[in-house]
Structure formats: structure tokens, C-alpha cells
Design a protein around this nucleic acid. Sequence first.
RNA 1: CGGGAUGUAGCGCAGCCUGGUUUAGCGCGCCUGCUUCGGGAGUAGGAGGUCGGGGGUUCGAAUCCCCCCAUCCCGACCA
Length: 456
Amino acid sequence: MKAKLADYAPVKGCMVIRPNGYLLWENIQKNLDRMFKESGHVNAYFPLLIPESFIQKEKEHMEGFSPECAVVTHGGGKKLKEPLFIRPTSETMIWSMYARWITSYRDLPLLINQWCNIVRWELRPRLFLRTLEFLWQEGHTAHETFEEAEKEALKMLGIYKSFVEEYMAIPVYEGQKSESERFAGALQTYTIEALMQDGKVLQAGTSHNLGQNFARAFDVKFATREGGEDYVWATSWGVSTRLIGALIMAHADNRGIIIPPKLASLPVVIVPIYYSASERSKVLSYIQSLCLNLRKDFNIKIDDREEYRPSFKFNEWELQGIPLRIEVGPKDVEKKQAVLVRRDTGEKISVPFNEVSLRIPALLDEIQKNIFEKAKKFKEENTFKINIFEDFQKIINHKGGFMYAHWCGSPECEAKIKSLTTASLRCIPFHNDKEKGKCVYCGGKSSQRVLFAKAY
RNA sequence: CGGGAUGUAGCGCAGCCUGGUUUAGCGCGCCUGCUUCGGGAGUAGGAGGUCGGGGGUUCGAAUCCCCCCAUCCCGACCA
């Protein structure tokens, strides 16, 4: 809020994404969109309003979503014959269209993504993490075989993981969801889970293998290579503006947020320091010449506002998470240097005038790496191998973090654990110890450890 | 929908219990001037209020009573 990312809107549960926050979203979009396109996907736009009958076509999907939907009942001053749902996700709309577009294996795979807003009538909203309306992207793909769809679902999860880790500098666990945590209407849900600094965990992205459920519901058949006929295999995957929430909670310190350099629209800000009018003009012209080289490679702001003192500006830019600050005062002009200040460590580094343009990219890289490593260390230090249920309860309540424990695989145990600890099964990790053990709750047989945590 | 709390200036709050010296205050922010400026400046002045809404009690209500509305926090649901 103080970093001017967002504000509460007049409607309960809705937020305004302010320019600082929206810039972050634009950078998230820009990079993800590039990754989607590099992997063969294209963008399209589908309508906001979905006929009620569409939602009802896939039973599990309807049961999962209709309680949290906003419904339009009136239009043009009249009651509508059929209510229109504001999309909570677009599977039904998109598959109704795919039915028209897909007739042969030659039409496959169909790889479409959409950037849009959706509405889910959440009962307990929270800024960025759970709002009634939010922005996201949803990919919807159609394939010839189960294997191909499975491959796609995993590939997209991989893209999410690399984006979140490399750009947002947030380390994640990747894995699959248990049956009870699965997306409504999916055969399999894959997820990346990120640990926040308060010990709670945030689902940062999901990818689903939808099998043939939606194809059956919307009668999407295609002529196979062998001359037969089959239902199309589907995937869907999405990330949302929740990622901005993740960014804040993963990296912020007591000075404010920290924007990873790779996502910063404004990576560098220059604060001039002067005492008199003559010093002011000297310092500012020095900064101008300094910027001549830098501006080619970076978006740089010179904060020459007269009404604030330098110390005020330092704090303000730190609050907003600008990765690197350059201070230039009379002393620096005299010594032909500039002072570079890292947002992540606060370290001040004096750099000779003609080396500044070299040091900036190197420092930005270091900051990017440092905040990732710091978050990674935190994640690892807060992942606990648990064998006894009492330890599970103790640690989850005092420290939070991931409980890496054996689980027998039964939904009953999962539900029991959740009701006793409020921790849910976040994922069955891909890369886990395939050791045999006993379920942390019931003591039944288990072949691997899974991750439990309190989640947002 | 269950439990808890709160609505007083743009933001954060005090005042309420025990009604009247309150002309409704304080901090931050905002506007103007001067001095300042290498880690959230100082000073002098200034603007800004249907005390959430409605009703009631009273000579008199921000304060007591009733109803309504809204928001926040903790649960159930969820990205």
C-alpha cells in the first residue's frame, strides 16, 4: 500500500492496481508472453459473459465454480431469459468455440492463450492475493493424445517455474496436487508453491491436464490419423496478479518492497545532493553527462524535485523497491565519481565516473542473484523433515514453512491433517526422496514424502 | 455464513465510561514564507469536519438507548 502498488476500491473485495503495481504486471506479462510465444502459443480474446448452460455442461467444473460466480440477470433493462455468468475461468467458453474450430488431427495442437480479467466471488478477500476481480492469463490447449496433453501441462509448469525463479527471484517447489486440491474438472493439476517470509505458502501458478472432460462436455471430436474419431485432449494453465503479492511477501524488508532488477521498469534512480544554487547547477550538469551513456541501456530517473531533501528521497525510493540508487553530490563531482547504493543490502559503493556504466549491469545482476539466493536459503531452512505428528503441529504453529512428511495417500488423512493443523497438502513434489515410510498421521504405508503448509 | 472489533479532517488516532469549558482536539500529510538539504528537516502562519446513517431520551448528544449501513480481523470457500 505504501509503495503505491494498489489501493482498496469502493467495492468490497476489489482493488485498484496503481501505476507502480501495474508496471510490475506489465513486466510480468511482457516476459511471460514472450516465453509463451517462443513455445508456440498465440493470444486471442474470448468474451467475459458465459451462458449459464455452458457452466453446467461439465459437472465437476460447475460444482467447483458456480458457488463463487457473479451472475448477470438483467440486460437492457430487462430480465434475461438465460443468466450470464461473468467468467471465473474460460474453459467452457473456449471449448464451445474449439468445437467449431477442430475437426481433424491437422487442426491440432491448438495452443491459445488469453490475457484477461476474471471474477470469483471470494468470501474473504485480501489485497493482491484474493480479490473478487483479478487479472491473469489462461492458456487453453487441445491435443491428439493424453501423452501430448500431459507433456504440454508439464512444459507450461516448467515455464512458470523458470519465470518465477529467474525473473521474480522466488524459489518454488513444483509438483502435483492431491485429488482434493485438484482443479474442478481436471485429471491432474500441477503447481508451483512459493514460501512467503511469514511462513505461509502461496500457490504461484498452476497447470492442468484436463483429459477429455471438456471435449466430451462440448463434443469436440477430431478425425484421427488412423481414420477414426476421438475426443480432443485438453490442458489449461494460468498465473495471475497474485504474483505481485508473492513478489511483495517474498522479498520485502522493513524498508519496503524490493523489485527484482529483471522486473524493474525503473532499475536506477539518481538523487542529486546540493546546498546552494551554484552547486545545484554543477551537480545536475554532472549528472546529465553521467546519464549520456547510461540512458542508452537503462531507464533512469533523475529525482530533481526541489521540495524534498535527499534523505527523504532515499527512503521513498527504497520503499518503492527501486533496485539501485545513485547519489551525486558536490564531493562526488569533485572526485569525479558517483555513489551507488544497493536496495537489497544497503551497501554504498563509490565508483569512478567512467566506470559507472559498467558497474550498473553487474550490480543489478548481483542484486537479482542475491535476493533469489536469500529466498532460496529461507525456503530450505524452513522446509522441515517431519516424522512425528506432534512435531508437525508444533512447527507449523510456531514457525510455519513446509512440512516435508510421509503421507499414506488417503484423502481422509489429508483432510484430518488439514482440520487439525490448518495446513493443506500443497504438492507431491516431482523431485522428492523416494524413501519408504509411515504416514505422519495414520502410520500407514507411504512411498514418498509430500509437502504440507499453511497456505494463502 | 459463524466469532470478534471498529466507524471522529486525505491518513492514523484521542475524546465517549461519568452528556454541558470543546468554539471537537492531536500526529502525519497538504498550502504559504524564511532558514535548511550526504539518511524520513526546523520554524512561523494557513486550509481542511453533515463526529458512518436514521430515529429516540434530554433544556442540551461525538458522548446514553434502539435500528440500519459499512469496513477490518479470525474461521469455512478459493488463484
